[in-house]
């Protein structure tokens, strides 16, 4: 069974969609819950255990409007894992989507991009 996960957004957690069959994942909205590690647990577990097997041609769209520092750490760890998988010659794409006036998200996208060397990272500014 291909992994499928949908989470609706709440006041401090984002909307999440992972559709392994379609090789697609999207996180959008805001993330500043005090316990983000708990919120992202099933996503991180899936990434660590199953992502590598399905990562060729995978697209991750990250369209966050705000996230706190603990979420930033978690997101970067997720991206680094994806990057490690891409290092095996697989094609992984990350679209970092934001509006042009969201300085914090743009700056963060630029910083993250510098840490990643194998996957395709697109900073998409609308």
């Amino acid at each position: 069974m291909a992994f499928y996960l949908e989470k609706e957004k709440t006041g401090s957690t984002p909307k999440v969609l992972i559709d392994e069959a379609k090789k697609y994942m999207k996180i959008e909205g805001e993330s500043y819950h005090e316990n983000v590690i708990e919120f992202f647990k099933d996503i991180s577990t899936w990434l660590e255990q199953h992502f590598e097997a399905v990562c060729d041609g995978f697209v991750f769209e990250c369209e966050m409007t705000y996230f706190n520092s603990s979420t930033a750490k978690l997101l970067l760890n997720m991206l680094l894992h994806m990057d490690d998988c891409a290092a095996l010659g697989k094609n992984v794409t990350v679209n970092w989507i934001t509006s042009e006036d969201n300085d914090i998200i743009i700056e963060c996208g630029e910083d993250f991009e510098e840490e990643l060397s194998n996957l395709t990272f697109n900073l998409v500014i609308n």
Partner: peptide
């Protein structure tokens, strides 16, 4: 307030509270 100013205030608020 502009988005970038209000995001800055909001971010400081969240981190101080956390």
């Amino acid at each position: 307030l502009s988005l970038s100013a209000s995001q800055s205030v909001f971010s400081v608020f969240v981190e101080l509270m956390n």
